[in-house]
């Protein structure tokens, strides 16, 4: 690249980029500004202006209201992420290194589970959980997330394990190591980056999930997205609360994205561009 200084082209480039960046940041700015206003100061015509007095009370109020849902979400996300990641790693190991006849077909059938609109399994899922007496609580929701998280986690791990030389596995097998001892001694220690990518991906997905949260849990066990939707749902709400709540619901995933963005993007790419 040649160094360009203030040519019309680069002015245009930076101008466009700045405009686009403003468009992308606009909602975030609006959320922060509105959350910091006093309820009485929020009016539609002055929505864009910076608040005269900073009002942090909305945050503590939102925290009070959303605390149970926040805690639910943390329990749900941590356990479902752990479950689906570990199982996904085992699956990926099988699909990458213990190929059996027709394993590619099974894998393709497996991936299909990632692409179905979840509405189509919602009713039987609801019925099954009810029959298992898991409907309404967190365990049922965790189970659903673990099962339907498997296709994507298996996919990421399979692609990751494809890079481990097969010769390594072969020689271990000749030395008499079995399926699980190879996994524990060789594959698992090598898969730390895979675990980071997969669990971050699952974490954000599960944290942000809404459809199952609203359909499969009772009020006391609602995850944060459902709690926020209810907080924002009423017609007469003053907007500072939903905005503060939104920020609260966004902070965990935003933090992941900002500090561990590299891994997050790898999960994103793995979820779409295969091979």
């Amino acid at each position: 690249m040649t160094a360009r200084k203030f040519s019309p082209g680069s002015v245009l480039l930076y101008g466009t980029l700045a405009l686009l960046a403003l468009f992308f940041l606009m909602p975030a700015y609006m959320a922060v500004v509105t959350a910091l206003k006093l309820p009485a100061d929020i009016s539609l015509p002055t929505a864009w202006e910076f608040p005269e007095t900073l009002n942090w009370a909305s945050f503590s109020q939102a925290i009070d209201l959303l605390r149970p849902a926040f805690v639910n979400s943390i329990i749900l996300t941590l356990s479902a992420t752990a479950g689906s990641t570990v199982l996904g790693s085992l699956n990926g190991y099988v699909f990458a290194k213990w190929k059996f006849k027709g394993s590619e077909v099974v894998f393709t059938l497996f991936l299909f589970g990632m692409f179905i609109p979840y509405q189509v399994i919602l009713i039987p899922l609801f019925q099954t959980l009810r029959a298992m007496h898991l409907y309404g609580g967190l365990p049922g929701l965790i189970l659903a997330h673990v099962v339907y998280g498997l296709p994507i986690t298996s996919l990421i791990f399979r692609n990751f394990y494809a890079q481990i030389p097969t010769a390594l596995i072969e020689s271990a097998r000749l030395d008499g190591a079995g399926f699980f001892s190879i996994y524990l001694r060789i594959v698992f220690p090598l898969s730390v980056p895979g675990f980071v990518v997969t669990s971050l991906w699952q974490f954000t997905q599960i944290w942000n999930e809404f459809l199952w949260g609203i359909c499969l849990t009772r009020h006391a066990d609602n995850p944060i997205t459902v709690g926020l939707a209810q907080l924002a749902g009423g017609q007469a709400v003053s907007w500072n609360l939903p905005m503060a709540g939104s920020i609260m619901a966004a902070v965990p995933v935003l933090a992941i994205y900002i500090f561990l963005g590299r891994y997050f993007i790898r999960g994103l790419l793995a979820g779409s561009v295969k091979e």
Partner: peptide, 21 residues
């Protein structure tokens, strides 16, 4: 980072904010 951050948000979060916008 700026262009990608909306991707990490929940639809509920972005929906709430956009409804206000």
């Amino acid at each position: 980072t700026v262009f990608l951050y909306p991707m990490s948000l929940s639809f509920i979060v972005s929906g709430t904010i956009w409804r206000w916008l």
